[in-house]
Structure formats: C-alpha cells, structure tokens
C-alpha cells in the first residue's frame, strides 16, 4: 500500500552512508478533521536496517517524526555491491521492505 522508500547507500571513506526517505503520512492522532473528530494516529513505529543479515540500525519512532520520514546514518563493514535492506512497521501493522545496493 505504501509507496516504495528511496534508499541511497554510498561509500563515505571506509563507512557506508545510508540515506532513506520513506513515504508515510505519520498522522499524530492529535489533529482533528473538519467535523471536529480526532484523526486516528497512523505512524511508523519501528525501522530496521540490515546489511548481510546483520542489523546495522534499529529505531523506534513516535508520532512526532515528520511526515515522509527521512533517516540517515553510517555504518562500517560494507563494500560496494553489498545490499542494504530497510524495513518499517507502522502502528496499524502495515509493513514495507526495500533494498538498495551500495555504490
């Protein structure tokens, strides 16, 4: 259902720099619609990044993370051609996994 993530993984010195742009509305549950009814919260709760089966970053998010979340981090031990896989799960159980090749 959700649109694919944009993932870019590039070598930066001896480390791999990963930049991820996810497509998610990240509704906080604080807002109200035009009728005054609260819009239910809908946000990404957990994000996991793996490289060769090893977790290189995991995150837990609250609804305060911005719409269409951006995330960037660096890890050691990757080389060009390796794959980096990112998975997110939201509070409605929706999931999305995408992968990128390190360049």
């Amino acid at each position: 259902m959700a649109d694919p993530m944009k993932i870019r993984a590039t070598m930066s010195g001896d480390k791999v720099e990963v930049k991820v742009l996810m497509s998610h509305e990240m509704e906080t549950g604080q807002r109200k619609d035009s009728k005054g009814a609260a819009i239910p919260a809908h946000f990404i709760q957990s994000v996991t990044a793996t490289h060769n089966g090893k977790v290189v970053l995991s995150a837990e998010w609250g609804p305060a993370v911005s719409k269409n979340p951006f995330l960037s981090f660096k890890f050691a031990g990757g080389k060009p051609g390796d794959k980096v896989t990112i998975t997110w799960t939201d509070n409605k159980g929706d999931k999305r996994t995408d992968e990128a090749t390190i360049s």
């Binding site: 480390k15 990240m26 906080t28 290189v56 970053l57 995150a59 305060a64 993370v65 911005s66 979340p69 951006f70 995330l71 960037s72 981090f73 660096k74 890890f75 050691a76």
Partner: peptide
C-alpha cells in the same frame, strides 16, 4: 555503526 543519526521531527 557510527553513533550519529539524522532525521526530521515535528
């Protein structure tokens, strides 16, 4: 993994 992350929040 480097102890540094970048993200955007509300």
């Amino acid at each position: 993994t480097e102890a540094g992350v970048t993200t955007r929040v509300k």
